[in-house]
Design a protein around this nucleic acid. Structure first.
Lengths: 133, 133
DNA sequence: CGGAATCCATGGAGATACTG
DNA sequence: CAGTATCTCCATGGATTCCG
C-alpha cells in the first residue's frame, strides 16, 4: 500500500519545454535539485539551504520529486531518524539543465542586497547593440 | 503614465537557479519563449501554438515577459490591429536555457497519446546501471 | 484583431500544533 | 529528526462580456 502516485499533467501535449518545466514545477524544485547536485543531503540540511521554505512545503516538494523519479529517499532506521535525499540516475540527467538555469541567473540577474527583489543585471539594460553581439 | 512594473521577488536570495526560474514562472512562459525563439509571432499566432491558454492568461504572461525585458511588443497602427512579439536581446540570451529544457523533455518525457499525462520515458525506468553510464 | 474588465471557483501555500 | 494533520487565506487562473 504505497502512497498514490501523483499525476503530472501538461497543458501543451507535445511541447518538450513545458514537459520539463512541469517536472521542475514551482520554484522550489529547481533549487532543491541544484543543492542535491553536489551531494546527498538530509532533510534539515536541505532546510538550511532553503531558509524561506516551510517544513510542510519541503516535504511536499521532496515527495513530488521522488514520485517523478528524480530523487531518492533513504531512511536509516536509527534514533534519531536519519533520512537522506539524493539524485537518482534520472535526476542526474537534469544536471545540464540545472546548470544552464544557474548560469543564466548568475550572469544576468541580481538581487537587491537587503531585499528579495530580482532585477536584470545592469549590463543588460544597456542599448541593444552592445548585447546583440 | 506607464503600467506599473511588476516586481519579481525571490524566496532564496542568492540562488541563481531560482532567479532564472522566477523569470520563467508559471508553465506558460517557457513555452512562449520557446516559440519566439524561431521567429516573431502575432498574438493570435501564439494562441494557435498554445491551444489550452486563455486569452486573458496569454495577455498576462506576455505582459510579464515584457516587464522582465525578455520580449518586445510592437503595435502597428493599422486596422485591424497588428501586434507582434519578439525576443529582446536579453531574451535571446535565454536560448541556451530553453534549448536545454527542450532537449531534456525531448529525451526523457513522453505524453500519453490521447491524454495529457506526462511520464518518464521507458528507457529510464530501466535499472540504474544502464543509465549511469 | 488584440485586448480590458469583471466575477468567481479552486487549490497552493502559510501558520500552528502534534508525533513516532 | 523528520515528519503529519488541520485550518485558513489569498492569489492564480478560468469563463464571460465588452471595447477601440
Amino acid at each position: 500500500m504505497s502512497r498514490p502516485r501523483a499525476k503530472l499533467v501538461t497543458n501543451f501535449p507535445g511541447c518538450p519545454v513545458e514537459a520539463t518545466l512541469t517536472y521542475l514545477d514551482g520554484k522550489w524544485k529547481g533549487v532543491i535539485l541544484f543543492h542535491l547536485m553536489d551531494r546527498t543531503l538530509r532533510f534539515n540540511e536541505l532546510r538550511r539551504h532553503l531558509p524561506a521554505i516551510t517544513q510542510r512545503m519541503l516535504t511536499k516538494q521532496l515527495r513530488e520529486l521522488e514520485d517523478s523519479g528524480l530523487i531518492s529517499r533513504t531512511v536509516y532506521p536509527v534514533v534519531p531518524p536519519r533520512v537522506e535525499y539524493a539524485l537518482t540516475p534520472l535526476g542526474t540527467t537534469l544536471k545540464p539543465v540545472i546548470r544552464a538555469l544557474a548560469a543564466w541567473g548568475d550572469e544576468f540577474v541580481f538581487c537587491s542586497p537587503e531585499g528579495r527583489e530580482l532585477r536584470i543585471a545592469k549590463a543588460l539594460n544597456a542599448p541593444a547593440a552592445e548585447i546583440q553581439a
